[in-house]
């Protein structure tokens, strides 16, 4: 099975304190530590496991600058066979539809049986997988937390739905699935895997290579524009308790008693 996994380089929330940039248009990105989007990492692991069972290849692809190459290499060290970097000044400022447009162009350059994305990334929109499927006229399932191969035409997939319930579906191949965390336990990257991929050439495609008009992607093609970033002002009735665990517990008990919640 030929599988394309779309991945994104995002700020690592375990390594950074995220704050809003001075102009209010973005987060403060100076000196941030980045890593692969967690959902995407699960998607890559799932793809590797499918290929281990059914044969084929896993290709990881990302849209970004030169720095984004590091996450492709990381996922290749994990076991993906190929990486593709989609880099062009014209791609900068793309909205979700723009990213899906770019990914569609690269997906159509080869024949993929399955396309995986993470359920969401740092922007939290959870839109690219669905848009990509619609643009390619492929069946789509979101929040997928289980994949079984029925045959080379169909998959049985589980979706996480409201209330912790599970929904099972059959879906025709080729298709697009957005992967939920917890579907598997992603393997660790080891030195051996790293050595194999540290010096391999990763092909890079720009808008011209993909046959894309600059006006269809990037800022020019964006139909959604971010206009403001801010930390919401604490409303009345909300109080953040601060201090050590003991201090927070003591304050909480005091508040519960004061408001009649605890006798």
């Amino acid at each position: 099975m030929e599988i394309l996994v779309c991945v994104k380089r995002v700020p690592d929330t375990s390594e950074n304190e995220i704050s809003v940039a001075g102009d209010g248009k973005d987060i403060q990105r100076d000196d941030l530590v980045y890593s692969v989007n967690e959902w995407d990492n699960y998607a890559v692991e799932e793809a590797i496991q499918i290929v281990d069972r059914a044969g084929g290849n896993v290709t990881v692809v990302t849209v970004g600058g030169d720095d984004s190459e590091e996450i492709l290499r990381r996922e290749m060290a994990m076991g993906a066979n190929n990486g593709i970097l989609l880099k062009d000044d014209a791609f900068e400022g793309s909205d979700g539809k723009g990213i899906a447009t770019i990914l569609k162009a690269v997906a159509q350059k080869s024949k993929y049986d399955l396309i995986l994305t993470g359920a969401q990334a740092d922007a939290g929109a959870a839109q690219v997988g669905g848009m990509l499927a619609a643009m390619m006229d492929l069946p789509y399932a979101s929040l997928v937390n289980k994949i079984e191969i029925i045959d080379d035409k169909k998959l049985k997939i589980g979706r996480e739905i409201e209330g912790g319930n599970q929904e099972m579906n059959e879906i025709n191949l080729p298709c697009v699935l957005s992967i939920q965390t917890g579907i598997n336990e992603p393997r660790y990257v080891g030195i051996r895997g790293i050595r194999k991929v540290a010096s391999v050439e990763i092909p890079t495609y720009g808008a011209g290579d993909l046959g894309l008009a600059a006006s269809a992607v990037g800022v020019a093609g964006a139909k959604v524009k971010k206009i403001d970033y801010f930390v919401p002002v604490l409303g009345d009735g909300a109080e953040m308790l601060e201090g050590s665990n003991e201090e927070i517990i003591a304050k909480l008990i005091e508040l519960l008693k004061a408001k009649g919640g605890l006798k």
């Binding site: 890593s35 060290a77 990257v189 050595r195």
Partner: peptide
């Protein structure tokens, strides 16, 4: 490679 080893 060293960057990846440290991250891993």
């Amino acid at each position: 490679a060293v960057d990846m080893v440290l991250a891993a």
